[in-house]
Amino acid sequence: MIQGRKCQKGSPDVRTLITGVDAQGKSCVVSHDDVALDQLAPGFAMGIPFATTTSPPPARPGGAAPLIDQGIAPGLVRWMVVDLGPDSETPTHHTDTLDLQTVMSGSVELILDDGAHRLHQGDLVVLTGVDHAWRAGPQGCRLSAILVGTPPPGL
């Protein structure tokens, strides 16, 4: 099972969008929360914006857009840095991975079936293999992406 943690509002510049599909199988944001940081010791705070409860992660939903096969077996991990040039766009696609993305610089729109979601530096996104595209802002965007291989739909 995949869970988004319901966090308290108010943590500056750290918000998490978690994607999924609606009852019609369309990609959408299923959770949009700020990350609460809990003070654990003086000078040390931590928050958990997302966690899985099974390994490998659950099967991804089926997608309508073309699949980009990342070549990552279920449960294996790849960490990438992605640069999107100013005003660039990717085609709509879905992946065979659970992607944990952080906007490192610039801005970008995550395009889902439910519309465009503007993201800025420090924002977090959990892409659960759903149909999506990216549209970079006027300054471009740099993303840090951790990809975890998932089983195919229906498993």
Rank of each mutant, 00 (worst) to 15 (best):
V35M: 13
V35R: 01
D38K: 13
D38A: 14
Q39A: 14
L40G: 08
A41N: 06
P42V: 09
F44Q: 10
F44R: 13
I48L: 11
I48E: 15
F50P: 01
A51L: 10
T52S: 10
P58I: 02
A59C: 12
A59L: 02
R60T: 10
G62F: 00
G63V: 05
A64S: 14
A64Q: 15
P66H: 01
P66N: 11
I68E: 12
I68N: 08
D69K: 05
D69T: 13
Q70A: 06
G71Y: 03
G71I: 08
P74H: 02
G75C: 12
L76P: 01
W79Q: 10
W79H: 12
W79I: 15
W79A: 15
W79L: 15
M80L: 13
M80W: 00
V81A: 11
V81P: 00
V82Y: 03
L84Y: 14
G85H: 03
D87N: 14
D87V: 01
S88T: 15
E89R: 07
P91N: 12
P91F: 00
T92I: 03
T92R: 12
D96L: 06
D96H: 07
T97N: 05
D99R: 04
L100M: 12
Q101F: 04
S105L: 04
S105I: 01
V108W: 08
E109L: 05
I111M: 14
I111N: 03
L112V: 05
L112D: 09
L112S: 04
R118W: 03
R118H: 10
L119Y: 01
H120A: 14
D123A: 10
L124N: 05
V126N: 02
L127Q: 15
L127P: 00
T128G: 11
T128S: 14
G129P: 13
V130R: 02
D131I: 06
D131C: 02
D131T: 01
D131Y: 06
A133G: 15
R135Q: 12
R135W: 09
G137Q: 05
G137W: 06
G137P: 00
G137I: 09
Q139V: 04
Q139K: 00
G140E: 11
C141F: 07
R142V: 13
R142K: 13
R142Y: 10
R142W: 13
